[in-house]
Nucleic acid binder design. Structure first.
Lengths: 194, 194
DNA sequence: TGTTTTTCTTAAACTAGTTTATTTTTTTCG
DNA sequence: CGAAAAAAATAAACTAGTTTAAGAAAAACA
């Protein structure tokens, strides 16, 4: 059983960023800035309206970032699993986003101040934001320029694991279509590969 | 007439980042990393396939970042005008994007190395990437969750100037619809406000 | 295990947005 | 200025995706 105060996954991440082992002091510094938290499946990590939200580095589990539009409909923006970051980069402004846990999840969380401090020491931490941007841009273009069919195929190619871990209605929202339409796509696929 | 070697707009930008006046040395350092370039309307700034692309800080004019899908159709990702940055953050990997000038445009351009150097000195330069991310995320959610009608209204509210400077077919592509459909939206709007 | 709840499928009627084609309007430029 | 080119509007037929509803299948759980 994993010790609740085990920060080894986090330290390993920063060693990869730094490209060399961390000293005891460095580890201590990192540990002191983070807080270990766990969220049970369906539990909220962040809700629209909250200010000063934290950044989350996921040790184990699966989180989902989404909005709820004025008709109460949810739109999944992205999912984040083990060894990925998730948070609202707009913090400390009040967020418009929701984050909840799709599986029981353990994270290391850090506030904006801590995050900035570490970004100044571990320059490559900022690279992550760049990578997130690139990812989102690709996703944006993909949803804009391709049909839901094609986007589903792409997802299977690029992230088959997600499809295993997620119920279809979350995938459909991620692809920007209704569950009913995704079901049609799946039926057509099944017919094709008969 | 503006001198081709006038870097004052650029220096002013970095003074805002730094929150205090720059020394002569600092100005010199910045100037040495950038290159001043001009692009005539319709001229390409960047083409898909190119590697090691540059970052552009716009002094005057209007640029457009877009992709061309496999059917030859263009999708406008974003526009950038005076005092805004534009570039492919994926550099030095070969880019999938095109940038061209929608007006005669003058820019200060910098390569990836220079950009990183300055990011280490002027920490707030990285904030820009965050802001870009937030902007794109909002845009993404908006296109996903709203109708083209609503997105057009939002654009008018948030960026009326763009609508003046751009032909409708560029706006329609930005909104993720065809020119024909935007024309319908405009006709309906005109009818309403009769 | 059986019951309840959640998820998925199918169908049918509908709508937001596309496509293709034609005409009109506006802009460009020799 | 007038001709040519580019942009915008309109119409009509179409399609990708939605909505609502009802039943089937799967998962949760007591």
């Amino acid at each position: 059983m994993t010790n609740v105060e085990d920060y080894s996954v986090l330290h390993k991440y920063f060693e990869i960023l730094k490209k060399e082992p961390l000293s005891a002091d460095e580890k201590e510094n990192i540990t002191s800035l983070f807080r270990k938290e766990t969220f049970r499946k369906k539990e909220f990590v962040m809700k629209a309206g909250e200010a000063n939200t934290r950044h989350y580095y996921i040790e184990k589990g699966l989180l989902r970032l989404y909005i709820i539009d004025r008709n109460g409909k949810e739109f999944n923006i992205l999912f984040a699993k083990e060894k990925q970051w998730l948070g609202d980069l707009g913090t400390p402004s009040p967020t418009s986003y929701y984050i909840d846990a799709l599986e029981n999840t353990s994270v290391f969380s850090i506030d904006e101040d801590g995050f900035r401090k570490l970004s100044d020491i571990y320059f490559d931490l900022a690279t992550n934001i760049r990578k997130s941007y690139i990812f989102l841009q690709k996703r944006f273009v993909s949803i804009l320029s391709k049909t839901a069919d094609e986007n589903y195929e792409d997802l299977i190619q690029q992230n088959p694991e997600l499809i295993q871990r997620l119920p279809n209605y979350h995938i459909s929202s991620y692809l920007g279509v209704t569950p009913v339409f995704l079901s049609k796509i799946l039926a057509k696929r099944a017919r094709k590969s008969d």
